[in-house]
Amino acid sequence: MYAFNYHRPASLADAAKLLGSATDGKFLAGGQTLLPTLKQRLASPSDLVDLNGIAELNGITVSGGSVTIGATTRHAAVAASAEVKKAIPALAALAGGIGDPQVRNMGTIGGSLANNDPAADYPGAVLGLGATIHTSKRKIAADDFFTGMFETALEEGEIITKVEFPIPKRAGYVKFPNPASRYVMVGAFVAETANGVRVAINGAGPCAFRHKEMEAALAKSFSADALKGIKTDPGSMNNDIHASSEYRAHLVGVIAKRAVQAALG
């Protein structure tokens, strides 16, 4: 790691101020991606602004038709939450499958979304459920949030404060992990919501995306069979030593079917 300054503000305002005054500052949430990146000397921020001291960023509330998760809430907390398990079991299951137990004890939803790693889990749920991302400045709809590989709609200094998930009629998430890293190689989050069926595919392409053809098919009949014969364009898939784009495109179909089955219980 390169040397940096460390700050642990207690308020959002202080956090924003600290980042603004840094030459090249970065927010630190769970650190499960940022710290490995720094250890490999792949980034050299001048300052790290640790968000974990800001009480209002942490916690889970379920009210009315939504589950709201604070940005620094650990994956393990989401996975273990009885309320989340009851309201959106697929979301709890997704959180319970991120990384490994130790990563889940540190990693946060805000950090995961701000980073938008193509192989991350949470983008699948956010896009699949049509969640709303609350930031220190505004609210951003899931469909507008993920803009590309490691790219989001977040502006410089903007902090995710919480994520609001509408409770769907039913939802399912299944992933096919990369055999080595166990990050997502192909994931599918399928949800039947008040605003229709949503199918988010993560891990497979450079950025999580909605599979419109599958959504249309499932809107007609919410069953695994409805997805039969739907192809995914390999041209839009990632390609690496673990999975060719053709294989990923094939897995999108298989995993999406399994996600539908999971949603149906």
Partner: peptide
Amino acid sequence: VYDKESGQLLTASFLDYC
């Protein structure tokens, strides 16, 4: 796994070496 052209080691961590 080595890249045939560049000779780079593509499996240089537990992220890629299973």
